[in-house]
Design a protein around this nucleic acid. Sequence first.
DNA 1: AACATGATAAACT
DNA 2: GTTTATCATGTTC
Length: 209
Amino acid sequence: MDAEISKTEQGLRLGEAYFLTEDVPRLARELLGKVLVTFLGGERTAVMITETEAYEGPVDRASHAYGHRRTRRTGTMYLPGGCAYVYLCYGMHHLFNVVSAPAGVPHAVLIRAGEPLEGLSLMLKRRKMDKIEKRLTAGPGSLSRALGITTALDAEKLGGPKIWIEDRGIRFPDKEIAAGPRIGVDYAGEHALWPYRFYLKKSKWVSKR
DNA sequence: AACATGATAAACT
DNA sequence: GTTTATCATGTTC
């Protein structure tokens, strides 16, 4: 079931205040249905967010900022909510997170998947694919590649002009949303079991069922 | 040495 | 179609 959104429709850009909450699991759930837009090199691409994960900084063993760890990489998460945290994973994947909470509280939401809405041909080109299929934008590394997001955007504010998030009024009832353990964080012990991953049950644009 | 992954191939059902 | 194994890749600590 594809979201019905015209190519030219615009939504309300979420401002910094939206991202200042410390309730990062709630924010992760709220971001489902929001529209992530990049405008790079004069070209625009957009997806509707379908899968997210919350990382609760200091108290979360799965977070890079567990125990207030502060390094060159994690410093970005201590910025005020509303900017991008982009880092390189496994040497080749640029993973995009939304920094959350006020300055000094290193919470973040990993955006794991989305439904393609705009700039489909450019997304295909960036992914070196020739037809639209799930793997275009399902999975955090694939999503970033399709949207042109790299570590060059680390610490970039989500107010535009390069990258922002819109509310186009798309809403989902709780019964259409699944919550479960996060992916690929087994090293975090029992914290890996926290139900901090959220996704749309009915969407095909999700990395794993 | 570890790491918030993805592509591919081979061996299943 | 699905599961499973393997590996590419480079920054961080």
